[in-house]
Write a protein that binds this DNA or RNA. Structure first.
Lengths: 133, 133, 133, 133
DNA sequence: GTGGTCTAGACCACA
DNA sequence: GTGGTCTAGACCACT
């Protein structure tokens, strides 16, 4: 049993073509934007996240650095990295663009297996009705 | 309304950061997935598409090449490039299992960005109604 | 006897009529097939192999690329290219069926050239004993 | 029920990378060399072979042309194409080279599915013992 | 340092 | 006419 409930669960998709550091940034941004990560919350340490995601620590460093440059997080040397009070400006359009990119990648991947958009919608609808999520 | 019926209309966005050849692949895969490109249809010739998109012919070659390796298209030397059958030996049960696996992975990935199954279905449905892209 | 143990030694034959990039692919595949290259091993870097073979780096890139698309190797950007696992989800029964299908096709193909199963086995056995190529 | 028993059965492998016309030439050469095709025998007509192999008639024409240039066959306008009396010089080395090329392609293909040379030899040996050919 | 992308242009092979 | 291969060289991205 873990001591604390994780506020954010980052998943790296090696097949997406999106650079790892970019995937990390995007997911943290989105978590801030929709309230899963609130001001003052501590992010995982570079090392623990690197182990968790099985990526090079430098990759995490790069992601955190970019977030810091944008002012979304503060790094306190020797203590950790924390969500700053700067609000993330994420319009519905921005959100939709990210979703669009994800969906496009998925649809293409599915096409490689011979599935159509129709197949996907059908399966997803059934999937939802069965109460999974 | 265009005068002639286009089998596929590819657009390159130089600002997206996605490599040109990958944009071509994605759009062809999507066209296959939503039925705009059907089995046996001929793709534009390498040279004509290169002129059309204003990219180097080699860039188109590279895209077609990857599609060929993946088995999505067949190349007939000296003749052209065609959408292949690809609905290989696969039982419906196998198909469903593969689709299930793909969908589960995608839903989990989307969830880490804060998107729900509902968001995905909505986007896909809109996407279909708008006639792609 | 060479001083250092080579994981793989690739030789390009410019007179064979087989494209360079394909010769590279074939030899790497064969090295995987007979166990000289095992999972996780790093391939030579693009540049070093290009120098070694006296071909253009792009030619090596192309070979590695196709191997990557087929799932035989994994590329880690900025790090190198490695033999991937690839023993995907496949039961022994499935494996045997696929092998059977491959072998049947090959035997039939060989027969049309006048070669018998005996010829093939003999060649393969000799091939193994000579330590490949 | 066919009227005559075919002396030669040509098989085109679209995945081998060997040009179709080349595959036809090789297989006819081998058939002449090992006595399956004897002097005076008629080859299939261009059209019938093209239909049979599902290739462009021009491809067959090209193969027959090259065989004619080498003096292996005679074309009698309006009558057909016949094996000439020129012996095919095909040394064991030549034969082995052709076999080598075929086997290399097959081993590589098998590697893509994760099979080793050992797997192949084992399966082939069993295959032969079961009396199949 | 690694690999990735793209261009320009030459030359070859197949139908 | 189609696609295929290769080179040379520039510039970018990731570790």
């Amino acid at each position: 049993m873990d001591k604390k409930k994780e506020a954010i669960h980052i998943v790296i998709d090696p097949t997406s073509g999106i650079p790892y550091y970019r995937q990390i940034i995007l997911q943290i941004e989105m978590a801030i934007a929709d309230g899963r990560l609130t001001v003052g919350r501590q992010l995982p340490t570079v090392r623990s996240l690197a182990v968790d995601l099985q990526v090079n620590p430098n990759t995490v460093v790069r992601a955190y650095n970019e977030l810091e440059i944008r002012g979304l997080v503060n790094t306190q040397h020797g203590t950790g990295t924390f969500i700053s009070d700067k609000r993330v400006e994420m319009s519905d359009v921005d959100r939709e663009q990210i979703l669009a990119q994800l969906v496009r990648g998925f649809v293409s991947q599915s096409a490689s297996y011979g599935f159509t958009v129709h197949d996907i919608i059908k399966y997803l609808t059934d999937y939802r009705e069965e109460g999974a999520l």
